[in-house]
Simulated scan of single mutants.
Amino acid sequence: MRARRQLLLAGLAAPLAVALAACGFQPRREPELLFQSIALTGFAPGSPLAAELRRQLARTPVKLVEDPNRAELVLEALLDERDKTSVVTTTAGQVREWQLRVKLDFLLRTPSGEILLPNTQLRMSRDMNTSESAALAKEQEEAQLYRAMQSDVVNQLLRRLAAVRLPA
């Protein structure tokens, strides 16, 4: 009985795998960047978003250059901000829900000043319920939500960088 079930499952899995391969399904891969070096400017010192971007770029063959004049491309951060606003409060003034936001405005240019990507805005927001009885857990949840949003923003940024073609 058990062998028959396994054989039946294997018989169903094989056509499914063939169908997925035939439709062009592929797991998401790292974006392929078509430049050799990049400089990051305009980020606040100690910016968690800049740190995540540096970490992700370290996984690619692209070299991170400190001097913008020596890089092929310059990513200039115009706004790098996190904020938290109350969305729902009780009649007693206690906050019951927060909205967490990560904002990044940037442009991409060559060292000579030619704009390759004009001012682009990336925004992420998440809502988070809160209660005074679980304050420590909610702090950890908030930090985790910020990390997830920051990772999403960096992934979107890398996909935009992968679409950039250098001027000839």
Rank of each mutant, 00 (worst) to 15 (best):
Arg55Tyr: 14
Gln56Val: 00
Gln56Arg: 09
Gln56Ser: 08
Gln56Gly: 05
Leu57Asn: 07
Ala58Ile: 02
Ala58Glu: 09
Ala58Asp: 09
Arg59Asn: 08
Thr60Pro: 06
Thr60Glu: 12
Thr60Ile: 11
Val62Leu: 01
Val62Asp: 12
Leu64Val: 05
Leu64Glu: 05
Val65Asp: 03
Val65Tyr: 01
Val65Thr: 11
Val65Glu: 07
Asp67Glu: 15
Asp67Cys: 11
Pro68His: 10
Asn69Met: 12
Asn69Gly: 14
Asn69Arg: 14
Asn69Leu: 13
Arg70Asn: 12
Arg70Lys: 15
Arg70His: 15
Ala71Gln: 00
Ala71His: 02
Glu72Ala: 13
Glu72Gln: 15
Leu73Trp: 03
Leu73Glu: 12
Leu73Val: 10
Val74Ser: 08
Leu75Met: 04
Leu75Pro: 00
Leu75Arg: 01
Glu76Cys: 07
Ala77Gln: 08
Ala77Glu: 08
Ala77Arg: 09
Ala77Ser: 02
Ala77Asp: 07
Leu78Phe: 08
Leu78Ala: 09
Leu78Glu: 12
Asp80Ser: 00
Asp80Val: 07
Asp80His: 08
Glu81Asn: 09
Glu81Trp: 11
Arg82Lys: 12
Asp83Gln: 12
Asp83Phe: 12
Lys84His: 10
Lys84Asn: 14
Lys84Arg: 14
Lys84Glu: 15
Thr85Gly: 13
Thr85Ser: 14
Val87Gln: 12
Val87Tyr: 07
Val88Met: 10
Val88Gly: 03
Thr89His: 13
Thr91Ser: 15
Thr91Cys: 04
Ala92Lys: 04
Ala92Val: 01
Gly93Val: 12
Gly93Thr: 05
Gly93Asp: 07
Gln94Asp: 13
Gln94Gly: 02
Gln94Lys: 09
Val95Pro: 06
Val95Trp: 11
Val95Leu: 02
Arg96Cys: 07
Trp98Glu: 03
Trp98Ser: 02
Trp98Asn: 04
Trp98Val: 05
Gln99Asn: 10
Gln99Leu: 05
Leu100Ser: 03
Leu100Pro: 13
Leu100His: 07
Arg101Glu: 14
Val102Trp: 06
Val102Ser: 13
Val102Asp: 04
Lys103Leu: 13
Lys103Arg: 14
Lys103His: 14
Leu104Ile: 11
Leu104Ala: 05
Asp105Leu: 15
Asp105Ala: 15
Asp105Val: 11
Leu107Gly: 01
Leu107His: 06
Leu108Ser: 00
Leu108Trp: 00
Leu108Lys: 02
Leu108Gly: 00
Arg109Ile: 02
Arg109Trp: 01
Arg109Ala: 04
Thr110Cys: 01
Thr110Gln: 00
Pro111Val: 01
Pro111Ser: 00
Ser112Glu: 14
Ser112Ala: 15
Gly113Leu: 02
Gly113Thr: 04
Glu114Trp: 06
Ile115Phe: 06
Ile115Ala: 05
Ile115Gly: 03
Ile115Asp: 06
Leu116Pro: 01
Leu116Val: 02
Leu116Gly: 01
Leu117Ser: 03
Pro118Asp: 15
Pro118Met: 10
Pro118Ala: 13
Asn119Cys: 11
Asn119Asp: 14
Thr120Gln: 06
Thr120Pro: 11
Gln121Val: 07
Gln121Tyr: 14
Gln121Trp: 02
Leu122Ala: 02
Leu122Arg: 03
Arg123Tyr: 14
Arg123Lys: 10
Met124Gly: 15
Met124Thr: 04
Met124Glu: 15
Ser125Glu: 15
Asp127Leu: 10
Asp127Lys: 13
Met128Cys: 11
Met128Trp: 09
Asn129Phe: 07
Asn129Cys: 04
